[in-house]
């Protein structure tokens, strides 16, 4: 029996896919902004001279980096209500992405900070800059510039990873795909098209992050 492909069967449901793309984008943008922010704070804590905080952050990083995102998501969505923390599907998905990206970006930003030569910090001190100024202008910005490509790849990985959020019924792109194939039984066609959508999204995201990197770091060179 030869199978007849019918990609037309997806067309009537195109709005579900658009909704999914929008929600996946929202998840990614919120997760990336807060997650990277968390990562910068984590890296600062790791670099600081407070050993207890540094160790706590270290444990957080190792715990997250050595467990699957799907399990983290299930733990947050199904497990936390036992502690009285009830989250909606969207909130749980965003929180899982923030916590996940926070750990990875802590390590990435830390690597950038460690690559800053000690002499630069001493030079800034001799210019009487205070600690916050030094961290912001002398350590963080050059460090971020250095690790921006690695950070960008990690953000793309987190965006792609968000497809498992369909498992807690967060209505992102994969959820839309599951929904459509449950209506028209065209599983292969639907997933094929959605895979293409993800590919386009990841290429666009990577390009967008490159432009953002240029905007953030190149222009300040002469300031």
């Amino acid at each position: 029996m030869a199978y007849k492909f019918d990609f037309g069967a997806i067309v009537p449901h195109w709005e579900l896919l658009v909704d999914g793309v929008i929600l996946t984008t929202e998840l990614t943008v919120i997760g990336a902004v807060i997650g990277v922010g968390l990562g910068i704070m984590g890296a600062w804590a790791r670099a600081s001279r407070a050993p207890v905080i540094s160790q706590i952050v270290g444990i957080y990083v190792e715990l997250i980096r050595n467990t699957p995102f799907l399990v983290q998501l299930f733990f947050i969505f199904f497990g936390l209500p036992a502690l009285g923390v009830k989250l909606s599907e969207f909130q749980a998905a965003v929180l899982a992405m923030i916590v996940n990206l926070g750990a990875y970006s802590t390590e990435i930003v830390r690597a950038g900070i460690l690559a800053i030569p000690q002499g630069q910090i001493e030079a800034a001190q001799s210019l009487a800059m205070n600690r916050v100024q030094i961290f912001r202008y002398v350590v963080l910005l050059p460090a971020l510039k250095k690790i921006w490509p690695a950070l960008s790849s990690q953000i793309v990985i987190v965006m792609l990873g968000s497809s498992v959020c369909s498992q807690i019924a967060a209505e992102e792109l994969t959820f839309g795909a599951n929904y459509i194939q449950a209506i028209n039984f065209r599983a292969f066609e639907v997933y094929f098209v959605v895979t293409g959508l993800y590919l386009v999204m990841s290429i666009l995201l990577r390009m967008g992050l490159k432009v953002l990197g240029n905007f953030l770091f190149e222009r300040r060179r002469h300031v």
């Binding site: 199978y3 793309v156 792609l160 990873g161 497809s163 795909a177 292969f188 895979t195």
Partner: peptide
């Protein structure tokens, strides 16, 4: 590029639902 630019879940779905189509 294809495997690094798409979710692992989609790759598994395509294998899981695609192979039965070719018998």
């Amino acid at each position: 590029e294809l495997f690094q630019g798409t979710p692992l879940l989609m790759q598994l779905f395509i294998v899981f639902f695609g192979l039965p189509l070719i018998g």
